[in-house]
Design a protein around this nucleic acid. Structure first.
Lengths: 332, 332
DNA sequence: ATTTGTAATCGTAACGTTACGATTTCATCT
DNA sequence: AGATGAAATCGTAACGTTACGATTACAAAT
């Protein structure tokens, strides 16, 4: 309802002066500033988002492109603290955060392109990067501020925040070896997924150091759901030479694996040792001995916003490259 | 980059004609429409969001106000499928969805008011309603389209989608009684929370029908976290007359309670019977006998968007009042 | 030849904001 | 008294879009 014109009319001032007064312009008399602000407050003036955006080109909106592999099942739980961290940090920085959900059917590049063209956002957060992710070059070319959650293997500098999946998987594998495991199973998402690739690499490093050859049959892909994890792990347990250790991709993978174990009467922590990623603190409350790599996804969300904001403010500044470590908490 | 003016210049047409052509205006010659569309496609024209919003007053943005009681702990897991459902449905309906996270420090009314005044959204989704929620009247007065996830006890008609918490709690309590439980513990969030009030009411109804007096000490408030649930339930189990049944508020409450049980060597399904709400299918995968009320939060999210959209299209139409039932799945 | 009618297109204004240059006011200096 | 300059305020244009009334072109009817 309230706009600059109305405030100006009420005070017999010009719209220009009111506009300037509200942002403490040095050209405006202090007493006028006070009067303007008082009226603005009384009538509940809030700058119109679109008027301002049209004029200035800044929308004060950030957009997170998140894959939601829903349809019939739940997404990775770590998205919840990630979203919390991002929305709260964005709000604090004066931005609102828009969530653009993509399904597996969506073309990720097209999703990004659409965001670009409507000029409806000041910056983009892209996630679930793949090898040689085409979105990175696209966004750099178009000079659209962005930050990636995850890395790609392109030979360009771009801003990202990532979890050190290589190190976490390495450490998880080592911890399992410390328990005496030699046949260690590993959960991954999809081979193209860069985070999965890093996990595989860390796993491979630990195995190589220990001189254990990698058995491809112990490596599980598509571990998006509790069901797929349970089915896969059950199959492994039924084999002639079952694994004695397991590194889970996330909470859902863990729950599925526990389910498979339980049905066979096997006990985690003695029959099979387990280490998992966990961002919800869920594993710690399960009645089972499980090693946990806690990754603070809310902090990752905040960092993403922070980096993105600095890109917007200074598009030519140095590109941040932040690697977040996991914190290992052994099975008690 | 590309705007109407450029397309117009390239075709020696007026901006008006181009604008009309792109929306298949009947005043424009079919051949012209074709030419315009071809150029628009070639230059990658997408209508500028803010120009359009400024002119039409429609922003094509919906805003969900979600409480995130983070800081040191995770929010209720059901928010994830809710967000998924909302974002995907919004996108399908041509809207983008903005998430406005509030912390416990935020004044919920002020949060809503700010959204109202910046005219930056076409509609609001409010959640976690309290008794006599002031936001409902505020939004009705301001004629801002909105839909509530949850109900309040005001004597006004307003659009909402809610889970039938009364019925679910009633049924959960009955199921526990069927197992022979008479001392049944109940988890709630905060007393002001309308969903908790409904749960308490359903619990009370079942208890009254069975002629069992309500023991206030069995009713737990503030069950937002696994920690609080574990502490509360541990305390109950230590009492002289411990509960034999438990109705959990959600997944986190369940995990906390299981933790408390496990530490005492008690077995869910025999020592203590448990029924829980679950929207992530998590409980089904736990190695424990637990009755589950599954509530499809993605469907709730989609319904919310659907109702909100119909409010925007027809603000004076009938107000939808949708009650979503839970689906009970007994402990196997 | 003039009018009428219709189809196609155009020009202008407006949404609310901000940027920029122009204008007014008034005290101070010569 | 007249010029100078700073301080305060104003007017206009523009961002990209859409709505509305006006205008043009041209065929058909008088």
């Amino acid at each position: 309802m309230a706009n600059l014109k109305q405030i100006a009319a009420e005070l017999s001032l010009s719209v220009t002066t009111v506009s300037r007064a509200l942002k403490d312009g040095p050209e405006v008399q202090p007493s006028t500033i006070a009067r303007v602000k008082e009226v603005a407050k009384r009538v509940g003036y809030v700058p119109d988002h679109h008027g301002r955006a049209l004029k200035t080109g800044r929308t004060l909106t950030l957009t997170a492109v998140l894959p939601m592999e829903t349809r019939d099942h739940l997404s990775d739980l770590l998205k919840l603290p990630l979203i919390e961290g991002m929305t709260l940090a964005a709000r604090q920085a004066g931005y609102s955060l828009s969530i653009y959900s993509t399904t597996p059917d969506d073309d990720p590049v097209e999703s990004v392109q659409r965001q670009l063209q409507a000029r409806s956002t000041d910056g983009l957060i892209i996630t679930r990067l793949v090898s040689a992710d085409p979105r990175v070059k696209l966004l750099l070319d178009q000079r659209m501020p962005f930050v990636a959650f995850g890395r790609t293997d392109l030979d360009i500098a771009y801003p990202y925040v990532d979890v050190d999946n290589e190190q976490i998987a390495y450490e998880a594998t080592r911890r399992l070896m410390d328990k005496g495991c030699r046949r260690i199973a590993l959960q991954l998402l999809v081979p193209e997924d860069q985070a999965s690739a890093m996990r595989l690499s860390g796993y491979g490093r630990a195995m190589a150091e220990a001189g254990i050859p990698i058995d491809q049959s112990l490596i599980g892909h598509g571990m998006f759901t509790m069901e797929s994890s349970a089915g896969w792990f059950d199959h492994l347990l039924a084999s002639s030479d079952p694994p004695t250790g397991l590194a889970c991709a996330n909470e859902l993978g863990l729950l599925g694996a526990l389910h498979a174990l339980g049905r066979r009467g096997l006990v985690p922590g003695s029959d099979v040792h387990i280490v998992t990623r966990d961002s919800t603190r869920l594993a710690r409350f399960l009645p089972a001995k499980i090693g946990v790599h806690f990754v603070d996804m809310a902090a990752v969300g905040r960092k993403l916003i922070e980096v993105l904001e600095s890109r917007i403010i200074n598009p030519l500044g140095p590109v941040a490259a932040i690697l977040v470590q996991g914190r290992f908490e052994p099975a008690e």
